[in-house]
């Protein structure tokens, strides 16, 4: 009882924080007037991702995202100009601290509060690509309609780190290219799960980063559990990135009685040649999670020979492969 009251306070604090941070956003292109009641929206913060954007937008347009709401954090590579020209993108910009805005979450929470109420909302970074059951034959609207019909409000997708064979900067990424032509590999079955009793979400760790970088202190390995797709209500708030949200009933995206709920994956195209520069830059900016602890560990190892590939790596084929491996599930969607 006391705890649920505390969580309610925490959620309200998040919302108040987001409300205060709204002043940090400057609107560059506002096309939110085009949003129709049934539209599926995506929310993204980004910085200097120009090279990734063409593929990112193409991928999600094909999936059936109707409108992109994006926050640009002080890019200087043409990201802002490019996005301002897109017909289905509304873009805001800010020079304020990413870290102080809860790693961008406050900005997005505000935009979600304002625009996503009653819509399905997908929160993804520019290097995250959402894969769900039947995504090759059914648009995302089929999924959200089914979730609506099943009275499900939130949908889990595990972050699946993808990596190339060979060192990660061996093959340069070209704009517009499918990043998974290069980063085609992933770890098929080394994920560990713990339940977070406070927020009722699962804490998933594992993958190449844990195996290569966190062999000595696995507790610090990055969390891979994500709940990116939510039928949004303005009372909702993400707590830590998209790993969990409040009210905590939304974190119940897994079955506890032996069954499987439907779920997907977020293919993570982080480990490309773009990563090396990014890691160096982020280390200087100190804008990332846990005092950039993650980035320090990476950076140290990056000087050596960062090759995640091993003979047990799986080469990505399609969602059915991920389903068979047990990395996602169709649940009772057939």
């Amino acid at each position: 009882m006391l705890q649920s009251y505390r969580l309610r306070l925490q959620r309200k604090r998040r919302l108040v924080r987001a409300f205060r941070k709204r002043r940090e956003l400057k609107c560059i292109a506002d096309r939110t007037g085009d949003i129709l009641p049934e539209d599926i929206l995506s929310f993204t913060t980004l910085r200097n991702e120009r090279v990734r954007l063409s593929f990112f937008l193409r991928y999600y347009r094909d999936l059936g995202i109707d409108h992109f709401l994006m926050v640009d954090n002080d890019s200087d590579d043409g990201t802002l100009e490019f996005l301002a020209d897109q017909p289905d993108v509304s873009i805001w910009t800010t020079k304020h601290s990413y870290k102080k805005a809860s790693f961008g979450a406050d900005w997005l929470t505000w935009l979600q509060y304002k625009y996503a109420h009653g819509h399905w909302s997908l929160v993804v970074d520019t290097d995250e690509f959402f894969v769900y059951p039947f995504c090759d034959t059914r648009p995302i609207g089929a999924l959200t309609d089914w979730l609506d019909a099943s009275s499900v409000r939130s949908f889990s997708a595990m972050l699946l780190d993808m990596y190339p064979k060979g060192s990660i900067d061996a093959v340069p990424y070209r704009a517009g290219q499918n990043p998974f032509e290069i980063a085609a590999w992933f770890d098929g079955g080394n994920y560990t799960i713990q339940k977070n009793e406070r927020y009722k979400n699962l804490w998933v760790q594992g993958g190449p980063r844990m195996r290569a970088f966190f062999g000595d202190n696995p507790e610090r390995a990055p969390a891979l559990n994500k709940i990116p797709l939510v039928k949004w209500n303005r009372r909702y708030a993400y707590i830590s990135s998209t790993h969990m949200l409040l009210p905590r009933g939304l974190n119940q995206v897994y079955d506890e009685w032996g069954g499987e709920k439907a779920s997907g994956c977020l293919l993570h195209a982080k480990f490309l040649n773009t990563f090396t520069d990014k890691a160096a830059e982020e280390l200087v900016r100190k804008q990332h999670y846990a005092n950039s602890h993650e980035y320090k560990a990476y950076h140290d190892r990056l000087k050596e020979n960062p090759d995640f590939w091993c003979k047990w790596s799986e080469k990505y084929i399609n969602w059915r492969q991920l389903e068979i491996l047990g990395l996602m599930s169709k649940g009772n969607w057939a």
């Binding site: 998933v204 995206v253 079955d255 009685w257 069954g259 499987e260 709920k261 047990g326 996602m328 009772n332």
Partner: peptide, 24 residues
């Protein structure tokens, strides 16, 4: 099969949408 997947799941699989309580 879909029904069975949702209610019984794949035995021995622990993942982000199947994490049974002890005993289940």
């Amino acid at each position: 099969k879909a029904l069975e997947c949702r209610t019984r799941g794949r035995t021995g699989l622990y993942m982000h949408s199947r994490f049974p309580k002890e005993g289940w």
